[in-house]
């Protein structure tokens, strides 16, 4: 029943897409509400010690899946899912 509300589009590749940026969740601001977790098309989000974390290597900024990063759009606390500038930008394969 959850799948009806959160269809997961699976595109073959992101080859034609621009370079994406990994997101991170600021743990001190995360309420642990889990809203982001089922929305991530890359299954990159999981719970860790009461708050949620994004696996940077899996994050594609939802490019090819949705118009906007789902974790950012659903997060109840502003500026909690943010671009992780400490990591190199995601390179689309190709």
């Amino acid at each position: 029943m959850g799948s009806a509300a959160t269809p997961r589009f699976r595109f073959g590749s992101l080859r034609h897409k621009e370079i994406c940026v990994p997101f991170k969740i600021i743990a001190s601001q995360c309420t642990g509400c889990s809203a982001c977790e089922p929305l991530c098309p890359n299954v990159a989000i999981s719970e860790k010690e009461g708050s949620f974390v994004i696996e940077a290597t899996k994050c594609t900024e939802c490019v090819g899946h949705f118009d906007e990063p789902q974790c950012v759009a659903a997060c109840p606390v502003d500026n909690t899912c943010v671009v992780d500038t400490s990591l190199p930008r995601y390179q689309a394969p190709g």
Partner: peptide
Amino acid sequence: WIFFNHKR
């Protein structure tokens, strides 16, 4: 705001 159909 609302979050609906994958969009804010």
